[in-house]
Simulated assay, not measured.
Amino acid sequence: MRKKPKFIEVTDQPPYTTYVYGKSTEKYDVEFKIVDNKVSRYDLISSKYGSEKGIHTSDSKKDVIRVYGENYYEREDTGATIIGYFDKNHKLNIEFSLDDKDKVGGILVQKINN
C-alpha cells in the first residue's frame, strides 16, 4: 500500500520537489527530495525509520561509530554537531546530527554530485 505524503513543497530554483511524511513539515518522520524524478536525498528525524545498518534517532554517537567506523568527518551546522561518512563507490553521503548529549537527532542520506 502506498501512502501519499502529508506535505509537498515545490522549489523552482534549482527545481526539485520535497515529499514530507509525518505530523508537520517540522515534526516529520521522513522527507524525500526529488530531482529529475529521482530521490536525491532523504532525511529521517523520527525513530520510526533507521539507517540500513540499524542506526535510529536517539542512538548514541558511540553507536554510530561502532557501526559505521572511525573514518568520519565532523562539522557544526546551526548549533548541532554533524558526523558523516562518504561512500565514494555508491556516490552517497550519510550524516548524523547529534544533540548536546551526543544522541542522534536526525539522519540524512544524499547523493554525491560530481
Results as ranks from 00 to 15, higher is better:
I83G: 10
H90V: 02
Y19L: 14
M1V: 05
D43M: 06
I8H: 01
D59V: 09
K91Y: 01
I107S: 03
K33C: 04
Y68P: 05
L98W: 11
D36C: 01
G69H: 10
Y28P: 02
H56Y: 15
K38C: 00
G69C: 09
E52S: 13
T17S: 09
K27C: 00
P14K: 05
T17I: 15
V35L: 04
F7N: 05
S40V: 03
Y49R: 05
S46C: 11
F96Y: 09
R41E: 06
G50N: 06
E74N: 08
R75P: 00
P15W: 06
S97L: 13
R2I: 01
T18I: 15
N114I: 02
V64P: 09
D63W: 02
H56D: 00
I8D: 07
G84P: 11
D63A: 11
Y21G: 03
D77R: 15
S58F: 10
G69T: 11
E76V: 10
Y85T: 03
E26D: 09
V109G: 02
K48W: 01
K33T: 06
E76W: 08
K3T: 04
G50E: 04
S46Q: 12
E70M: 09
F32Y: 14
V67F: 11
V30L: 12
S51R: 04
S46W: 07
N71A: 14
G54H: 09
K53E: 09
G79F: 08
N37W: 01
F86H: 00
K103E: 05
I55P: 13
H56A: 00
I112F: 00
Y42F: 15
K101E: 12
D59F: 14
V104C: 11
N114F: 04
Y16R: 13
A80T: 07
T57D: 05
G84I: 07
D63G: 00
V67G: 07
S40E: 05
V67M: 08
K48F: 08
H56N: 10
K48H: 07
N71Q: 13
Y21F: 15
V39K: 07
Y49W: 10
D36K: 14
K101F: 06
S58T: 14
F96C: 10
L92N: 00
V64K: 11
K53S: 09
G54F: 08
